[in-house]
Amino acid sequence: MFTGIIQKIAELKEIRFFDKSVEMLIGCENFKTPLQIGDSLAINGVCLTVTEIETNSFKVQVSPETLSRTNLGGLEAGQLLNLERACRADSFLNGHIVQGHIDSLAEILNVDAIEDYFRIHIQAPAKLSRYLVEKASIAIDGISLTVNKVESGTSNFEVMIIPHTWEQTIAHAYHPGTQVNIEIDIFAKYVEKLLHPPKLNKPETLWVVG
């Protein structure tokens, strides 16, 4: 589990494409507690596993399912990445509960500077519009943000980014057309499932006559 508070900006050193998967070499100076093989990291909000460690860098593997839902497959060497380590059970929950399971890609429509702050307009897929609630939490490329406004009748919404977050994440590279990973608040999906459970096929009854 993660909290959506980005800890480092890392650089994609190399990306290797296989038939249906990807391996990424990511450059990153050590954390206070060194990484270990098997550790979970959120990279642009995507939960991935450290598979190999080199000097000031590490490798992760990306599955076909993850590539189909995220922006990782469209990255190039040299691009910057948001990085967050998995949180401990006794750590502060400074953002909100983020699983690292991306729901879909969304597109940056516009970025407006308002003094030192930045208002970002985003278009999500229509299927996610029912989860977009004003003042609710949402993760954009792993960044815990608040939905400031939802445009009525659309799947467009706005978030506001403070100067610190702008400088300490890849948000400063956003521009119209940028594809970002979004993760909806997990509690919204659980509530929907509980209120509207799917209809299950009625199992066939087997009669045994003796």
Score class of each variant (00 low, 15 high):
L75F: 09
I162G: 03
D112W: 02
K189T: 09
K199E: 14
S63L: 06
Q123F: 01
T165I: 06
F2I: 05
G100D: 07
I186V: 15
R16Q: 12
F17V: 11
V147N: 02
E65G: 07
I102V: 15
K127Q: 12
E107C: 12
Y174D: 04
L93Y: 08
I5V: 14
G100V: 04
E23H: 04
H164S: 07
E23P: 00
I97E: 06
G210S: 12
V150I: 13
G142T: 03
Q36R: 07
G27L: 00
A173Y: 14
Q123H: 12
V133M: 05
L109Q: 12
S63T: 13
K59Y: 07
F58G: 07
K127D: 15
L41S: 05
I5H: 02
L35H: 05
P34C: 06
E107N: 12
V150N: 08
G177W: 02
F157Q: 05
L75A: 07
E151M: 08
T51P: 01
Q61A: 15
C47L: 02
E158A: 08
K189S: 07
G95V: 03
E183H: 04
L48P: 01
C28Q: 08
Y131L: 06
V147Q: 03
N82R: 00
S104F: 02
I114E: 15
K135H: 11
S40D: 10
Q99P: 00
Q123N: 15
K135G: 11
W207D: 12
F187A: 13
